[in-house]
Design a protein around this nucleic acid. Structure first.
Lengths: 217, 217, 217, 217
DNA sequence: CATGAATGAGCCTTCATTCAT
DNA sequence: CATGAATGAAGGCTCATTCAT
């Protein structure tokens, strides 16, 4: 094989393919997710990944991936695939807009509960590798991937009048950061009740987005 | 000299001493802040710092600091000192509690505007070096340093009835993350109007903390 | 197949077979010539050759050739075949000896003009791979292949009295190096007028080989 | 120290400093010369050099030199320094121009006899590293360094009428290649009588540069 | 005739640190 | 207070080659 990247873009995404299957690639990606989640991006080396995956040598990684950047890209793609198919199942049938934000937050929290390592790794890679990898993942830009959806949703809600006045970009970023914060908290304390945390967050942003009758300024 | 962390803990804080003075230590710490802010924690090495500071060899760093961890600790301390003295000037004279949150957010945003590198480095080190450094900084725990104050303030406000019902820990973490998010945004776009961003955030959390009359659930 | 050098020695030469045919072997050899000509012997790897030839994996090379040495041997053979058949066409019908040297130089220059890559690769491989490959190519020794003919021709000329007194080995080596020098120059400057260069060289060695009436010493 | 290059340019040339002194740098450069001369540029690695020099680890090289390219540059510079000072001693006191070419050839041959490894390494590095290192060595361009002097000398001779008509560039390149050829020959056969070879070459180019009365064409 | 998968050895480089003065 | 010199460990990557189908 000797390298991939093209191959990854050709078949790797859009469908479920990625880390899930029992390919070598998949095995390596899974080990990468676990490793990054545990020791962080910068301490993650081929050697550490190989250890965890029980492979013979680091050469196996550079055989299947064009390099570290390529491995991380593929890992990112795999995580996003997993996340998309997870969220796809739970997306509510066009509920009233007002509840959509709550649903959005809660489903992402649910993903976090189900795949805490994926979430942590997603943030780790995204945080560190930007600039090296450049922004584009799957043709989408990192920032757009993370806050773009939220922004569009909020904007739509404002136009429909279910939300009050606020800066969409700021609100979206704040939600994004809040969600990432849960991942951080969960790492510190694996016993954390993410369910409850999610509902609390939902309430918080429910109030923050609602049109306030009066405002102390 | 063969200084190390002891010395840092002995004299380094409480007073203004740190990066500010024209000591070698201060010079190194300043270069560290600038370097971490620019290229991130994990790419920051003694070599890079030495380059920026125009020092002769990395030996100078290991002479003044016990090691990388010690350097980062000292840098963190220096940043926090700077931050404390900056915020100390702007802390309002016991205004009514309701406005305190807004003041708190806006003053931190003001610091971010004045010292964007410090803020970015603070987050970078805190994010990456935990575990290596362990939590304690200046005898205080990292988490407590960053969200503890907020928690206490929110709790007090709730008891005084100026805030509604919400989970203090969640709210504090959300505010913390929102604030860090500004730093991230500012890094991506140095033209960002942090002032406006701060006011938007203040409004957002004003609404989120207020006692809501009814709630769509 | 598991072909190797035996096969190459069996069929590879004497007949036109080599890189010219539309075999896999030929395709690989052509790519090798182009690659070596462009990036030099030492930077040429199976990977680079495969890239240029558009093959699926390096396995194809090690399938058709016993190893790197074998590939280079075969490439050398192919180049020499091409060269021989090219020169065969242009060799003058036993002209007077005096003009033979000039003809020899000019025809080799003509080959260089027609196949610059072949020439460059010939020199590259010959220069770098000696020792690895050992001297023998096609049963002939590298040195003999390159300067032997010249030596024999010069020697013959001396016996016939058309040349003056000089050390045949030195003169032959000098001509050889001069010819290789054209290849070098051509690489640096593809616009070079090799025709003119060749005539200049012919004149130069005409004078150098002629019996000098008097000599300033 | 941690890197050099600047340092090398500052002190390294112009004076005798280089490989000669008993510095670590000098020791490494000497080992590099010997290694390249023996196994060729492309097989020369830090490991091989370290072996020969009896150093503790390859780290010593990357401590004293910025990288492989830098090491090779410094080695080149050192060789050229040695060569310059050697030739400086033997350059004749403005003899008649006609003998200058002979003197030039013979003195370079003498250098080759005295420092065969230096010569071989000079050519090896020059041949392989061009493009990587770029042309400039000591502010001079590789090509100019090697054939420029010859060209200027030949040109001057022509103007003074001691030489006949010929293309200066072609003649200079041919001499250069002839000289390099001696190095090649010497490598193959260390017993070679370079003195005699040199005189033969001198005679050869004496005839080639002299104004020929008539020319068989 | 061809291919995918795997592999051990080697490369140069960077890292934080220690030994002496 | 400072510096030059040295160093072992580890990093990512490329190389030619072999195994099995």
């Amino acid at each position: 094989m000797q390298v991939n990247s093209e191959r990854a873009e050709q078949f790797g995404n859009g469908m479920g393919r990625g880390a899930g299957e029992h390919t070598r690639r998949g095995q390596i990606i899974e080990a990468t997710i676990a490793t990054v989640a545990e020791i962080g991006y910068s301490k993650t080396s081929f050697a550490r990944i190989v250890e965890r995956a029980g492979l013979s040598s680091t050469r196996l990684i550079s055989y299947h991936f064009a390099g570290k950047a390529d491995l991380m890209q593929a890992t990112l793609s795999s995580i996003i695939d997993t996340m998309d198919s997870f969220l796809g199942t739970r997306t509510p049938r066009k509920a009233c807009r007002a509840r959509l934000l709550r649903a959005c937050i809660e489903s992402e929290i649910a993903f976090l509960g189900a795949y805490p390592e994926h979430m942590r790794t997603l943030v780790e890679i995204g945080t560190h590798a930007r600039g090296d990898l450049g922004a584009p993942i799957l043709g989408m830009v990192w920032h757009d991937l993370r806050v773009g959806r939220l922004e569009r949703q909020l904007h739509q809600g404002q136009r429909e009048g279910v939300f009050g006045e606020f800066d969409v970009a700021v609100m979206a970023m704040t939600i994004r950061q809040a969600l990432d914060g849960v991942s951080l908290r969960l790492t510190e304390n694996p016993e954390l009740d993410v369910q409850a945390y999610g509902q609390e967050l939902a309430g918080l942003f429910d109030r923050a987005t609602r049109a306030a009758p009066a405002q102390t300024q």
